[in-house]
Amino acid sequence: MSPKQMSLLQGTLDVLVLQALAGAPRHGYGVAEWIRRTTDGALEIEDGALYTSLHRMERRGWLESSWGTSENNRRAKYYALTPKGERHLSDATQDWARYAEAVFKVLATRPPRRDGGRA
């Protein structure tokens, strides 16, 4: 991926991760699984980028982490939303909706005809 697309993905990735944790606390692998399932494999995320996103959001106070026992009885680090994170998620969701709506508006208009004839 080109650098420009990576940074765009980072912001988008944060929102996806927050959404992944909105239902229940998960560990990093669980988040990756959930995103893959929910998007039917359409979005492929580099694992390193995912963990960077998780740690960064913890630093910003949107997530809190703790160690727990996973479903296969091993020690794993779980992440959960903080109230601040919840607020950010709802703001970001609204922003995304508006953004997408605007983009679709533009894309939905008919382009002018390009033949040599009179309009």
Binding site: G28, Y29, Y51, A76
Partner: peptide, 25 residues
């Protein structure tokens, strides 16, 4: 998990934790 969280305040081993987390994945 929360009770464990309180224990974490005692000098956590940051690199070790990171290793363990990534190893699990």
């Amino acid at each position: 998990v929360r009770r464990l969280f309180r224990l974490r305040d005692i000098r956590p081993d940051v690199p070790g934790d990171v290793d363990e987390e990534l190893r699990y994945h």
